Computed example of a mutant assay.
Amino acid sequence: MNSTSTFPSVLRELLRTHQAFLAYAASHVCTLDLTLPQYDIIITLGDSNGMTFKKLGEKTLITKGTLTGVIGRLEDKGLVQRVASETDGRSQIVKLTAAGEDVYQRSFPEHLSFINRIFDDYSPEDIVNLEDSLKRLHKTVTALRNNESGMPSDETDQ
């Protein structure tokens, strides 16, 4: 396959799909008076006992530099709180407040239903094929990134 002819069209479609998905998801999240990064934190913390900043950064799509600001804005809204870690005095745990837990419980099932509409016209086989293709692409990109940086392959990064 000629990589110079494949690269622009495949990359363009991948990026267009990513942007369209984020805009679609944001259209629901904005009805909650939240941004996508804020909602990402709420659904990540939902049904948990809280997480360190490091763990939240690993489990969300939020960059480390942005995470503190997002948490601060959620604190201002009364949806999360920071508490000292019982096991490590240097770290803090971010937890949902009662109001944050209420937002999570009320909105998450509805949000999943909203997102699942994307796949209404897909057969189960289509979904499996799409997931397999995306996993293959992710594995390839991760392996190449790790080879370029000299980092070992991280099997948990899938």
Score class of each variant (00 low, 15 high):
S133N: 13
Q38P: 11
L32N: 01
A25G: 00
V128K: 08
K95G: 01
P8L: 10
L11C: 09
H28A: 12
F114E: 06
N116C: 01
G100Q: 06
I42L: 02
C30R: 02
K135R: 15
A84F: 05
E75D: 07
L34C: 11
I43G: 01
L45F: 12
R106S: 01
L11Y: 00
K54N: 03
E131T: 04
E58S: 10
E13P: 02
S133E: 10
S107E: 08
F119E: 01
L96S: 04
K54T: 09
D88I: 04
T6K: 09
L134P: 00
T68A: 05
T87N: 07
I71F: 06
L112V: 10
S5Q: 13
G72W: 01
P109Q: 08
L61A: 06
T4Y: 14
S9C: 09
K64I: 03
Q158V: 14
Q158L: 13
R106K: 14
P8C: 08
Q105D: 03
F114Y: 15
K64S: 11
L32E: 04
G69V: 06
F7W: 12
G46S: 05
S27D: 11
S3R: 09
L74N: 10
R117G: 10
R12C: 06
L134K: 14
P152R: 03
L137T: 08
S107F: 05
F114T: 08
A84C: 00
D33Y: 10
V83R: 13
S27A: 14
A25Y: 05
L130M: 14
G50P: 01
L74Y: 03
V83L: 12
L79T: 09
E131W: 04
L61D: 11
T44S: 02
S107P: 07
G65A: 00
T142M: 15
A84D: 15
H28S: 09
